[in-house]
Design a protein around this nucleic acid. Structure first.
Length: 271
DNA sequence: CGTGTGCCCTGACAGC
DNA sequence: TGCTGTCAGGGCACAC
């Protein structure tokens, strides 16, 4: 499930236990996820102290006192398990501090783990072309207007493009377009100025609401076998095909395919 | 350049 | 109770 709010919640949950701690053990249970683990991953992380955690788009960052950061991506099915009571066959990497174990579990293995120089993270290949953070200052209606200008691609696909805005995935794009009353099929360049002005705060609010939901579930992570990365949020359109839209005068939620992925929307609210 | 397609992988679920 | 097909929250390589 991991989109920006889930990664943010995961990072906050990890920070609670990892910040300031020394990594004493690094265990790899297979050589790769989406791509091979860095050849020096174990050496680079063993004995390093975690001086902070962060997030960029859907990537989590574990900063060490060696000037390097471990960059993880949860893909479609990744999550961190804290002090798992029983091992899972998909616990592919385990970090150990004096007090805890942190298992990166990812059945589909669409995730990744990399090492990067902390001071040069902005120039790290996967980050160099990323658009602004949707919760940051660089994200605005003006930015969207400039980057969407002339684009014929559907707004749904544009918002999934991490070069335009970094961190949105299928769920929150569907939810934000519904809240902003924009038809997901509308060409990016044809979304009106007024619609873009409404879209920006809707994106922010739907993300902040989900982070808040995740934060309240963080309480549970204090218990053994806590799992980071998944929490329940109620969605207005996502995975609700055939159900009534809850807005006043709303219609029946439709599901269509766009670029090989599903989009859910209300044909009466979204124009 | 912008745009569209297919694939990586396992698991859950529906229908027979 | 199996089987089979479909779909899943992401990102990237590739073709045009």
């Amino acid at each position: 499930m991991p989109e920006l709010p889930e990664v943010e919640t995961t990072v906050r949950g990890l920070a609670r236990f990892l910040e300031g701690e020394r990594i004493e053990r690094v265990t790899l249970n297979r050589p790769d996820l989406r791509r091979p683990f860095p050849p020096d991953l174990v050496q680079a992380m063993t004995g390093a102290r975690v001086i902070g955690l962060g997030r960029r788009a859907k990537y989590g960052l574990i900063h060490t006192d060696r000037g390097r950061s471990m960059v993880f991506h949860l893909g479609m099915s990744g999550r961190w398990r804290i002090d798992p009571a029983t091992p899972d066959r998909h616990d592919h990497l385990v970090l150990g501090t004096q007090a805890h174990n942190f298992a990166l579990c990812d059945p589909r293995r669409f995730g990744s783990v990399d090492l990067a120089e902390t001071a040069a993270l902005d120039a790290w290949p996967a980050f160099a072309a990323l658009g602004p953070e949707p919760l940051g200052d660089g994200f605005s209606a003006d930015h969207l207007r400039a980057t969407l200008k002339g684009r014929t691609q559907a707004i749904k696909a544009c918002l999934l493009d991490q070069r335009i805005v970094a961190g949105l995935g299928n769920i929150y794009v569907c939810e934000a377009l519904h809240r902003a009353g924009i038809d997901p099929r509308r060409a990016g360049g044809k979304v009106t100025r007024a619609q873009l002005a409404g879209l920006v705060p809707e994106i922010r609010e739907v993300l902040l609401g989900a982070i808040s939901d995740g934060g309240s579930s963080l309480r549970d992570y204090a218990r053994p076998d806590g799992e980071l990365g998944y929490f329940s949020t109620r969605f207005a359109v996502y995975d609700r095909e055939g159900q009534p839209c809850q807005r006043q005068d709303g219609g029946t939620i439709l599901r269509i395919a766009q670029g090989g992925r599903s989009s859910w929307y209300c044909p009466r609210c979204q124009k």
